[in-house]
Design a protein around this nucleic acid. Structure first.
Lengths: 225, 225
DNA sequence: AGTAATTCTTGATTTAAATCAATTTCTTTA
DNA sequence: TAAAGAAATTGATTTAAATCAAGAATTACT
């Protein structure tokens, strides 16, 4: 059996914001880390919850969703190992605005709000790291927002495919159902389906298997508008 | 004539992130602050610039815009006195992704990147304040993104009017041209024009003068979808 | 004040994407 | 492995908003 301390050490190693800390600092943080497991479909937190902890995904996958005023669910982003959530509200006394649900069996490391804030007081490097991570997420959300207001669905899907494929353009797997992709891009499954067909017919992508694709013409895909 | 030190003191008083600091900490920061003036239409910074300073608006108004892949300009947000910008990139070594332009004669207080980071090392409270401000901006941008993907233009405009009016529902001024509102909401001036007319015809708002309006039925406006 | 230059409004038309509806394909589980 | 359930596809239709175009109102300029 693996000890809690081991899990904590693993979490700390995994997460970029802790990586550049001194050994001393890391040793201070380790005892603050608690680990929890979530089964597929289980809720990590819901909108309205008070934010008690910073949550770091150690393994598995979590989807973060939001319910819009009109009742529609929108997928905001996915958390993979090393990603964390809860920072936004950790410092604002507010309640959570979104939902976190495990898409796979998921291990989460948690640090309680008070513990974390206390640690920040004595570790300027940790604060800088958090600010850095914050800055990146802010830029990414801002970019998403701009895309949503200025780009067509076709363009957004093309970008999504290029991002998702990364360097594995010749065989990559969609990390979520088309239904979720639709929600993520702010459209409907029907439209996603049609755009996939269009891209395939035009020789931009090729379907290898269920949920597996190859990008045939990255240049054209990048120029879709 | 007003001395630079006075300007600096004014900036520091103005900005929420500095307000809760101790007198000692404030005294340390004051000499780091440089002041600059910008005329209407003048550029504070452009995309591609390296981020050299945190910019704090002391007076006037600044619009932050982004150029989308298709060349369209989108207005991201406005900075009013007390607001600041540049935090996102201050910690990421990256270049600016957006443009800042003075909409009115504007005074800006600037703190150089290195100076600011050094100050953070010794002032945990400052770090917490920044994180707090960051969290709020992140939440606001995320909300904007969700609205853009899930709400109709009509709904977005209704929300925009309610936000802009604040508590002055019986006489408020639009802070920007309809063209800019269109850009901000991701639509066209023509559509904005038609929606204004629709709201007026349905007794939701009333035009008092050029760019001045009264909200007649806030409840209905909030329920538009 | 008077003219030029923007910005705003309104109408007509087109277009992208949503919705509605019916199969088909895939996944789960009994 | 068969049956049930969920997800994805495809077609027909509707709808919200963009685009194109012209005129009216504001604002800026000399």
């Amino acid at each position: 059996m693996v000890h809690d301390a081991d899990h904590a050490a693993q979490c700390i190693k995994l997460v970029p914001i802790f990586q550049t800390l001194s050994d001393t600092e890391r040793a201070e943080i380790a005892p603050l880390v608690k680990q929890r497991h979530f089964a597929v479909g289980e809720s990590l937190f819901a909108a309205g919850d008070t934010v008690g902890s910073l949550m770091i995904v150690a393994g598995g996958q979590v989807k973060i969703t939001q319910i819009a005023a009109n009742g529609k669910e929108q997928l905001l982003y996915l958390l993979n190992p090393g990603d964390f959530d809860g920072e936004a509200a950790l410092f604002t006394n507010s309640t959570r605005q979104n939902f976190g649900t495990a898409l796979a069996p998921t291990d989460v490391c948690m640090i309680r709000r008070q513990d974390f804030q206390k640690q920040l007081q004595t570790s300027p490097q940790l604060a800088l790291n958090i600010l850095n991570a914050f800055g990146q997420r802010l830029a990414s959300v801002a970019e998403q927002s701009t895309q949503a207001t200025t780009a067509s669905i076709e363009e957004r899907l093309a970008n999504y495919l290029l991002e998702t494929a990364g360097d594995k353009t010749d065989d990559f797997k969609l990390p979520m159902k088309k239904k979720d992709i639709a929600s993520y891009l702010g459209t409907t499954p029907e439209t996603i389906s049609r755009k996939f067909r269009e891209f395939t017919d035009n020789g931009l992508i090729e379907k290898l298997a269920v949920n597996r694709f190859r990008i045939l013409d990255a240049d054209s895909l990048a120029m879709v508008e």
